[in-house]
Nucleic acid binder design. Structure first.
Lengths: 153, 153
DNA sequence: CCCATATAGTTGCACGTGCAACTATAGTTA
DNA sequence: TAACTATAGTTGCACGTGCAACTATATGGG
């Protein structure tokens, strides 16, 4: 390679490491959910947890809080509603709004889910001490801030 | 919340931070590619780079090296072949094998791509010094190792 | 030589994604 | 009240994903 060539060392940079680790975390979560016999995807789990924590949120709020497009959220809700985990209730004052609630069945599923979530957290953070976790989160925040300014020209 | 309740603080744990940052990185890359007028997705870029670095890999190797299922890879290749970025050549000795090569057009696209990749690396790592990057990669490796043992019971 | 097994690649399926266009309702202003 | 605008949610589209079943070619043993 010539000196003037732009050297690409993407592998040694943060991006691919974050991406690959994220992918592994996702696989692990999916596997853990299946192993516990839960009929849930990782994405559905995130929505289930959010609805459990804050009952009655509308779809736009839920989409924002779970970092997805409102159309993606609508489709997740449709599937979870079909499985009987939650229901959408039209707001009487503003008929455009659907408020989302867990069914008793959804609440039960979430109780099971909590066990899995805790197991996941323990596995991810095994052999990593609290100071390292804080350090890591601090740097990840920096990375996120680096994108807030938009694209450089 | 009762003391006996399993407290879930997923938000303060590493998992969601890694996932969200990864998502932001992906959006950023996609945006950067579009802004440079490159008709490429982030995933196609990864494949393009790998084929550029190692010409003549077969599909299985390429799938392994880019961390995807061989079927996902096959579909990426089909799209990139259709756009004229690469071609697949059946191995004469073992007709099951396709070896993958960049076309001249694919090589040109990759040259453009390099500029974008370097811009991405710079943006991600802005205000983060080398020791922090090394620290981060060290912890991410630990997280990945935590999954290698399979699921705990 | 033939059959069983292994391997490379493809295809069908169900999942999730964002964007853009669309419907319906709400609110505001002439 | 009618018209314009904003907002919540849905739908079509193209993208990418893994798994399982499938085809075709290779290989090794009886």
């Amino acid at each position: 390679m010539e000196k003037t060539d732009v050297y690409i060392d993407f592998e040694r940079s943060l991006g691919p490491w974050i991406g690959r680790t994220s992918k592994m975390v996702d696989y692990y979560i999916q596997e853990a959910l299946e192993k516990h016999g839960l009929d849930l995807t990782k994405e559905q789990m995130v929505v289930l947890k959010k609805v459990n924590d804050q009952n009655g949120l509308n779809q736009n709020e839920l989409a924002f809080l779970t970092y997805r497009d409102k159309s993606s959220l609508a489709r997740l809700l449709a599937k979870m509603e079909k499985k009987g985990y939650l229901y959408r209730q039209q707001n009487a004052d503003d008929k455009r709004i659907n408020e989302v609630f867990l069914t008793p069945m959804g609440q039960d599923i979430f109780q099971e889910c909590k066990v899995v979530i805790n197991k996941i957290i323990q596995t991810i953070e095994k052999n990593i001490d609290e100071s390292e976790i804080q350090q890591m989160i601090r740097i990840l925040k920096k990375v996120q801030q680096n994108f807030s300014g938009g694209l450089p020209d």
